[in-house]
């Protein structure tokens, strides 16, 4: 009976690569495989394209949109509850404790050791809400990918790119506001030390494309780093699961392979858990540092 089933599966010739891509890719439906299969895939509504100028936009909600909303909802609820609990606990003249205390410490770490440490003492507190929001949004999005039936919105290049563009705007507009228009233009057309007059101007003009490229590379790296890390992690986990399918038709060995794979996946999952925090930290820290660098440009 089992043998027959295994052979059947083998005959189906499972395409691991396709499974991996299918599970990491965005989709227009949410699937409840295995245990909740009877719920069937939930089909998200499909909206018509919108034409803005020469662009064709389709704002239909996708799986990643849903998980992004879940992440945002969870961030908001956890932070709101934390704030409420802290207020209540302080009103009792008591020290913060439990969940609220842990979250407060976490938020303060992001504020002090990422935002203020990166941006600088004077402007750090001003940018802290943005840095904290982006940190926790990315963190929760990353963690959602590790939850059963979950998906990482941050494993989607469009979403990481959109976040990186927000960082880019924060960096550049923050710089403009701090340095003034003239000072900001200096970051594109730099002052060349040791040169004056026409040669300095020519040199400055020659440097401009490099400077602009330098500005654009930062958010590009942010977007690709986050996307790559999250996607790669899922690829690894799904590929390891693929091993089970590949060797599923073996007589006895399949059990050993199954257990070995499960162990490996558990280890990789732990690594992924760490990476979920690490990448949120890296994104937030680099954004803060770039904002800080821009603020102190002169």
């Amino acid at each position: 009976m089992i043998q027959e089933h295994a052979q059947e599966q083998a005959q189906e010739s499972v395409n691991v690569g396709e499974i991996v891509l299918h599970h990491t890719a965005d989709a227009s439906e949410i699937e409840f495989d295995l245990i909740f299969t009877h719920l069937g895939p939930y089909h998200l509504p499909h909206w018509n394209d919108i034409h803005v100028g020469g662009l064709t936009l389709n704002l239909s909600p996708t799986k990643h949109v849903v998980f992004m909303l879940i992440a945002a909802f969870l961030v908001f609820v956890s932070m709101w509850v934390t704030g409420r609990m802290l207020k209540a606990q302080r009103a009792d003249q008591g020290a913060p404790r439990g969940f609220a205390n842990a979250m407060e410490a976490f938020v303060l770490f992001v504020r002090d050791d990422i935002a203020i440490a990166g941006v600088g003492k004077e402007m750090g507190a001003k940018y802290a809400p943005f840095i904290m929001s982006i940190f926790f949004f990315i963190l929760y999005s990353n963690l959602l990918g590790l939850v059963p039936y979950g998906a990482s919105p941050t494993g989607n290049l469009a979403i990481t790119a959109a976040l990186a563009i927000l960082s880019f705007l924060a960096i550049e507009i923050g710089g403009m506001m701090k340095l003034g228009m003239g000072g900001y233009m200096r970051t594109i057309f730099p002052k060349v030390p040791g040169m004056t007059g026409a040669p300095a101007m020519a040199m400055s003009m020659a440097m401009a494309p490099i400077e602009v490229l330098g500005k654009l590379v930062k958010p590009f790296a942010l977007a690709v780093r986050l996307f790559g890390n999250m996607t790669a992690g899922h690829f690894v986990i799904l590929s390891l699961f693929g091993i089970i399918f590949l060797f599923g038709q073996l007589e006895i060995w399949r059990w050993a392979i199954g257990f070995a794979t499960a162990g490996l996946v558990t280890l990789i999952m732990m690594l992924e858990l760490f990476i979920a925090f690490l990448q949120a930290y890296v994104f937030a820290l680099l954004t803060a540092t770039f904002i800080g660098l821009m603020q102190h440009e002169h």
Partner: peptide, 29 residues
């Protein structure tokens, strides 16, 4: 890259940011 998703991201994140700034961060900090 699905540009519609980028619009969604901005919408969701900016809403989250404004809500957090209004209701969560001040209470915590």
């Amino acid at each position: 890259v699905n540009p519609g998703l980028m619009i969604w991201t901005w919408l969701v994140f900016i809403t989250l940011f404004l809500l957090l700034r209004r209701f969560a961060w001040p209470a915590i900090l």
